[in-house]
Amino acid sequence: MQTKTNGSNDGRQWARSDATRQALLTAALQVFADRGYTEAGIADIVKLSGVSVGSLYHHYGGKAGLYLALWEELTGEQETRAVNTVAAARKSGVSDPIALFIAGARTYLGVCWERREAARLFHGGEGPPGFSLMRRKRARVWLGANTRLLRGQDGDHAAQVLSLVLTTVIGEAGREIALADDEASATAIIDEVCRILQRLAGEEPSAPA
């Protein structure tokens, strides 16, 4: 009986901690979006979240930790959903590397719209010290993954350049999609970007459905 009670208590404690973290992230995103990273204050985040200052520092260590956690959450979702889309396309029989790349890109860009408030924040370029370096490192990893998806090998400069061009287009397009006025506009941008990616990759864009 004691084991069951402890397990139940552990579960409730975990749930409370998860709810606390989510409340802090939600409040931090709103405060960062309204004021920017530099002007955002811990007191504002605490007040909006209803969570204590001590809990904020316990879970995230301060304002910078919250900002980076939001960034990791967004980029993690973008990458995971893009990878899952590519895997599903492969499973359905798609083998052309460009088609797989564009399928992943479409999903990635879709997240830019779905999570547009966060995407706008990080495209703004502001952040804690060291954030720019972290973004560059993450971009290099993403570029390498895209090069491999396009079946490029080490030393394959043509594939590396193609990956760089296509990845840069996607990154810049994400900014415009996050700033779109409505879902229809965002969808139109995504469709056009995918056609541009096909042309840059040397393939004739398919007719819209």
Rank of each mutant, 00 (worst) to 15 (best):
Q13K: 15
V83T: 11
R138D: 12
D191P: 05
Y67M: 10
G130P: 15
E39M: 05
A82F: 09
I98Y: 05
G50S: 03
R16W: 07
S49C: 03
R151Q: 15
L109G: 02
A27E: 01
L121W: 08
L24A: 03
S8T: 06
A139M: 08
L179N: 14
T20F: 00
R140K: 12
E114T: 15
E79F: 06
A40G: 10
L56S: 03
A186S: 11
L150W: 09
L25G: 07
G54S: 01
K4Y: 04
A178S: 15
A23C: 06
Y57A: 06
T20G: 00
G174S: 13
I98N: 06
A40H: 07
D191M: 09
T5P: 07
K47G: 13
A119N: 07
A27Q: 04
Y57S: 06
Q2L: 05
D191W: 06
V165C: 10
P128T: 08
L162V: 09
G152K: 14
V86P: 05
T38R: 14
Q22S: 11
V53C: 00
Y37R: 04
T80K: 15
V94I: 04
A180V: 09
S206W: 07
L74Y: 14
L150P: 07
R135Q: 14
D181V: 12
K4E: 10
K47D: 13
T187H: 09
F131R: 02
A28D: 11
C112I: 00
T80G: 02
A64E: 13
H123K: 13
I177S: 00
S52M: 05
D182A: 09
L149F: 11
R140C: 03
K63S: 02
A118T: 11
H58N: 01
S92M: 05
E203F: 02
L179S: 08
F32M: 10
G62R: 09
E126N: 14
A159H: 12
W71I: 00
A159M: 13
